[in-house]
Design a protein around this nucleic acid. Structure first.
Lengths: 114, 114
DNA sequence: AATTATTGTATCGTTCCGCTATACATAGGT
DNA sequence: ACCTATGTATAGCGGAACGATACAATAATT
């Protein structure tokens, strides 16, 4: 069983992860947390102290917007991508792939035989 | 022409990059800088203020070892991987690939058509 | 010959992000 | 009644990448 990724590995790509989770449909904080956890097979488990400040940052940058909804019984803060957020997602995703290609060419020889 | 990668993207993989550059043969700081620059097609340009503290950290962790050599005319500080460093390189590379797979499954739909 | 750019290593202080710890509140299960 | 899961939030810490700065030897340019 593999452990969590090192914190520093996530740094700089957590924004991108969260944006990508929000791309399909609106989510609230806790559901983002669970989705990422599931999608990464437990290798990404964002602590609340990481997630919420991150969401506040993204909102301050107008990449996502939020609204409260208590109609489902429970008070939840929903988030959705803005138009700016969608552009940022595409741009960040493209840059990430370039970075990944670059890394692969560097460390390709030291990777375990797949 | 693409620009440099964002600093935070590199964070957590710079160690791995440097270790991989040192894997083939010993290098000194400046040559590591140039190699990474070249291998990344100018998208990774480590400032001295990043590179040298990083090398000192790796050495303190016994992942690399160093010696001075002035025989080639110029005083240079050479670095080579230790046995521990080689193991770390393999481990970090493996972990990075898992991380990359995870990212790809997350952002795959938002990647530009290649 | 003098000046500039490149090579080469190093440190200080700032900035910023992920984390731990802590806090508070509602809902559901035993 | 108690415990767990759900749900959001902030304060403070630690650490890495960076810009600025410093110093010095060598190569290139004028």
């Amino acid at each position: 069983m593999t452990e969590k990724f090192e914190s520093d590995l996530l740094r700089g790509s957590l924004d991108l992860m969260v944006l990508s989770v929000l791309a399909s449909d609106p989510q609230y904080g806790y559901s983002i947390q669970k989705r990422l956890q599931e999608a990464s097979r437990e290798k990404v488990r964002l602590p609340a102290g990481t997630l919420y400040p991150l969401l506040h940052r993204l909102e301050a940058d107008l990449l996502i917007r939020s609204w409260l909804d208590s109609s489902t019984g429970r008070q939840r803060k929903w988030y959705a991508l803005t138009a700016k957020g969608k552009k940022r997602l595409a741009a960040q995703a493209a840059q990430w792939q370039q970075y990944a290609d670059c890394m692969k060419s560097l460390i390709g020889n030291y990777l375990p035989a797949s």
